[in-house]
Design a protein around this nucleic acid. Structure first.
Lengths: 177, 177
DNA sequence: CCTACCGATCGGTAGG
DNA sequence: CCTACCGATCGGTAGG
């Protein structure tokens, strides 16, 4: 996950892993069976980490607006804490594979959609509970919210600009109160 | 530019270019002198294209709010028109190189900052001309605006979701009127 | 611009 | 899990 978050899922080579773990290449290889399976396994582990760090802690918050706020706050904290050295694994993998059809791209897209749907579920609930105005469009709201977190990740990774997290929080507060 | 926008600046290999142009590898190589120089030259060409497609046409608009709107509209149109098959070159290169220190990363970051500064210049001008409320913070406004365009690019590239362009335009209109 | 080559590394395999 | 290897490809060089 660490190598892939910095150098991409293509940069995660079997030889590099073998060196890192002081094993032979074939020793690593046999654990996965192919480069693609290694990439898929790494994505799956990264998603487990993401659920553990971001989604599960938000389960303590009431479904609806509180949960939505908690998901976004946990995500920003997760990025800010440098849990992975290259920032958000899913964003990086998405940018890397959006032009490369195949199983990895499909898995990345599915995981990314899953996160978006979870946000949208909470946004709908918040609206239906009257915590957000009745004319709020969940898809539009989630587009804007996820734009802020994605942008904060990109600005932090490319410029090292930590102010991006404050700006993302400010923007989120403007939308959600 | 086309290869790099789809497969990254690392995926743009000298051998691949040689095949594509029906030349020998060394014939391609001698034009650049190193892989890194090829990457930098490709980035430079992509930035020239970006200026031509997005920035120069906006010069017809009055500096300030009109120019800011034109820059964002041209950018979204540029993404939507599939000018490069992999979408925004700079976004892709930023995600690819944000974890790889070196000259390419520095050049990508500089180009990306340049675009942000141009947006901020127009936002400041708009505020100073009274086209935007006096309490608008240009950096915060540009963070949100560029978040929308970046997110539209990512959603279109990964999901093929063209509705993202409409959502970005809706969000921009909410902010700029 | 070419052919012919270099050492390194890639994903993957054979055989133990 | 290992050693030893495969063909392909990488960036780059020598020499013309």
């Amino acid at each position: 996950m660490e190598i892939a978050s910095l150098e991409g899922l293509e940069g995660l080579t079997i030889g590099r892993l073998a060196t890192e773990f002081d094993m032979s290449k074939s020793g690593i290889f046999r654990h996965f069976g192919s480069k693609q399976e290694l990439q898929l396994a790494t994505l799956e582990r990264a998603m487990t980490l993401f659920r553990h760090e971001v989604i599960e802690p938000a389960a303590a918050a009431e479904p609806g607006l509180d949960r939505l706020r908690a998901l976004l706050a946990n995500y920003l904290r997760y990025l800010e804490r440098d849990v992975l050295p290259g920032g958000c694994f899913l964003t990086a993998a998405g940018a890397e594979f959006d032009g490369r059809p195949g199983a990895v791209r499909d898995a990345v897209a599915a995981s990314s959609r899953g996160w978006g749907r979870e946000l949208e579920r909470q946004a709908k609930l918040a609206r239906d509970k009257g915590e957000l105005p009745a004319d709020v469009e969940p898809a539009q709201l989630v587009f804007q919210l996820s734009a802020y977190t994605t942008r904060a990740n990109a600005a932090y990774q490319l410029y090292g600009d930590r102010r991006a997290f404050r700006r993302a929080r400010t923007a989120i507060t403007k939308l959600l109160g």
